[in-house]
Design a protein around this nucleic acid. Structure first.
Lengths: 341, 341
DNA sequence: CTAATTTATGAAAACATTTGCAATACTATT
DNA sequence: AATAGTATTGCAAATGTTTTCATAAATTAG
């Protein structure tokens, strides 16, 4: 077999084998134009024979970028975050970055801990979801002066650069659609809003329009459900089984809306004849359910892509300063809402 | 404010401020029992005041583990991989590892490139999905002698350690269930099987049972669909619209089954009266759809968790050698299949 | 044919740590 | 009080690179 020098395949081994100095080897990687083609070839074959792989840790020590970006999400296992993560990852990948990822399960203390860990790894930048973070977290980011960006929510007063959509507006639009259709008895299914600005904004946005529109939201129609179809279905069953039920239900996101839809079906209610349902998000599958889910589309992939792009450029130095990008949202009318009769 | 020495908060700065040598500072982190409590406290306050964060890159250069594990997946944006990733991440996190993640979009060349990149970052271990990898990839893993594990598929002859389920058996079980119910005209909706051993195994598993059971699978009922509800729905519509349609459809995974379910609904077919549907996976929501999806449960979280645990231990040195873990699968009977009349 | 460039290479310092070894100070034992 | 041990600390070498500076060789110009 090729003689792999089992012990220590470092730049010295390569240099020795190629009969040049380590400086030349290093140069042939970093500034190939400064080294003679012939020697470069010698080095190349040595690298190949030895199976040498550069050590980024050693490079990082020279102030050279680590080539990593830390991404902290509440949870990976969400239809919606998965989509953002994918787009973000693809986008930074194009600039040569690799992502370190960790989830904190909606626990801001853990988020802080994760961020610290990332900084130990000397990530070149970090991306967080939303704007609810502990003061310690914001402090750390500012003190360490690290490139940072907040994804998913847009806020013109954001403390960090942000790329996202206006979740309050999303709530507004959803509620307005129901009001426009003449619904006045409206149920609400939302996830917990503590430490979750996105959900909070949507909820507030919806509430304010409903109040203005003189809609009724009886407390027993106002239900909290974790992000899970199963939970939402259970929650919805509680609303729907009361004899006095709303004519429409507004959901904090499409997964919850799916749960409500299934709950309705299991109660033998026809959608949208007996109940209108509107979601927020426009997740995969929302278009395909029968009937198609009426919802507010949030451009997840677009947000991930733009955030990755901006953060990369900002690290590379081609873009500077804070920036706030608002990604458009829109009402997608499908089959789960109809005018109230 | 606290005086953060903007330029260079390294171990020297801490040492200086705490009036000790850098060795002592280093020791107080790595072997706290070797340093006096009083000095440890001095160091601690210095660290706090300066906002010092250790540099793992520098540590890594001493043969100390980097504390990272590379996870290479075909795509992050899949209900099922998201779940595995989450469980894997949580599991390795408990041992202090952080994951580097990248997707290759079912392109094995890219997978190899990603693996190389991970090795440059000196990950302590890598996890790959399935067993279809390029020879180069396997080669690299063996040559670099890095801790590696393959997730998701179980195979007693696997080249790497593996934690997963027997996908062939999953196919067997699904097909057998349909045969047991008396179905003989069966449609198939599967994802592309090139470079995807999981899908291939399921398909082969299903086929062999169907053949043995003398079921008919006309070519026009044997459809390929990418992993997407939308695609699967379209594909299914093509099968269902022919006058001569199967009495049951077996799907390569639950997402595809969902698509088929919606397609059936949009054709006004009653499930399971007019058509039986069986999936593989038991994803989130499969239980909640109406009717609940009959499927083969693959324990995604369990696989992720066990893989993370095993890989961590193997890196830490508490476990050695190849190991193959088979996670149980089971038929989950819900509402989408009924005996053929 | 010599001087002035340009091209190609190597030596050594720098990067931020860890750790083996040696030195010092303190405590317990006889 | 002297000896042996133990606890605590510092010095300096080592880790795997990159990069500055210096030097040597090759090329071009005059």
């Amino acid at each position: 077999m090729t003689d792999i020098n089992k012990d220590k395949v470092d730049i010295f081994a390569v240099a020795k084998r190629a009969k040049v100095s380590i400086s030349t080897v290093s140069r042939s990687f970093n500034h190939p134009n400064l080294v003679n083609l012939a020697t470069r070839k010698k080095i190349d074959t040595a690298v190949r024979k030895l199976g040498y792989i550069r050590n980024r840790a050693a490079q990082t020590m020279h102030g050279i970028r680590s080539g990593t970006i830390g991404l902290v999400v509440p949870t990976i296992d969400h239809a919606i975050f998965a989509e953002v993560i994918q787009a973000f990852s693809d986008s930074v990948d194009e600039h040569g970055f690799t992502i370190l990822i960790a989830s904190h399960g909606y626990d801001l203390e853990r988020e802080y801990a994760v961020l610290r860990k990332f900084l130990e790894h000397r990530v070149d930048g970090v991306a967080l979801i939303g704007e609810d973070h502990s003061e310690e977290t914001y402090d750390l980011i500012e003190r360490q002066d690290i490139h940072a960006i907040s994804l998913w929510n847009y806020n013109e007063d954001s403390r960090l650069s942000c790329v996202g959509s206006d979740n309050k507006l999303a709530g507004n639009l959803a509620a307005q659609h129901l009001i426009d259709l003449g619904h006045l008895k409206i149920g609400l299914v939302f996830p917990p809003t503590v430490d979750n600005d996105r959900a909070r904004d949507r909820r507030n946005g919806a509430q304010s329009v409903l109040t203005k529109g003189r809609a009724q939201v009886y407390p027993q129609w106002d239900i909290e459900s974790t992000y899970s179809i199963a939970d939402a279905k259970d929650a919805a069953l509680r609303i729907l089984k009361t004899e006095h039920r709303p004519s429409a239900i507004l959901c904090g996101n499409d997964v919850l809306a799916m749960g409500v839809l299934y709950a309705a079906r299991s109660c033998n209610l026809n959608i949208p004849e007996d109940l209108s349902i509107i979601g927020i998000g426009d997740f995969k599958g929302s278009n395909e359910v029968e009937p198609g889910l009426t919802t507010i589309r949030l451009p997840a992939r677009e947000i991930g892509r733009q955030a990755g792009e901006y953060l990369s450029l900002s690290i590379i130095g081609k873009s500077v300063g804070r920036r706030r990008v608002s990604c458009n949202i829109e009402l997608i009318i499908r089959g789960t809402c109809k005018p109230n009769s």
